[in-house]
Simulated scan of single mutants.
Amino acid sequence: MRVVFDIDGTLCFNGYSIDSVIVRALEQLKKSGHELIFASTRPIRDLLPVVEKIDYDALIGGNGSIISKNGQIQVTRSIKKESYHHILELIQRYQLAYIVDDEWDYSAKVSTEHPIYQQLDPNNLAKNVLITQIV
Score class of each variant (00 low, 15 high):
T41M: 01
R24A: 13
D102T: 07
S20T: 12
Q118K: 13
T76A: 08
V129D: 02
L90Y: 05
S20C: 10
D121T: 07
G64I: 04
Y56V: 12
S111F: 09
G9S: 12
K53E: 15
A25Y: 10
R93W: 08
H85A: 07
H86S: 10
H86K: 11
L59W: 00
G15W: 00
V100R: 02
H114T: 03
D19F: 11
S68R: 14
L125Y: 09
G15V: 09
I22H: 04
Q72D: 14
V135W: 10
C12N: 03
V50C: 05
I134N: 00
L96Y: 08
G33I: 07
V51F: 02
N14A: 02
S68L: 13
V4N: 15
Y106G: 01
G9F: 11
S68T: 11
S17K: 08
P115N: 08
L29I: 02
V23L: 12
L90I: 10
R93H: 11
I79S: 06
V51Q: 01
L96K: 11
G71Y: 05
I7M: 14
A126T: 09
V21K: 13
L125Q: 11
V50Y: 03
I87Y: 09
F13S: 06
L36A: 00
K69P: 04
A108S: 15
V100E: 02
F5N: 01
I134G: 05
T76L: 15
I134E: 03
L90G: 04
N124I: 01
Y84C: 01
I131T: 03
I22V: 14
G9W: 12
I67R: 05
V51P: 02
W104G: 03
I134R: 05
V129K: 03
D8A: 06
L11K: 00
I91S: 09
Q95M: 06
I44Q: 01
I116K: 00
N123S: 15
S68Q: 14
Y106R: 00
R45C: 04
I67S: 02
Y56K: 07
E82Q: 13
F5Y: 11
K81M: 11
L125I: 06
K80N: 15
Q92N: 15
G71E: 08
I7N: 01
G64A: 03
Y98I: 06
K109P: 02
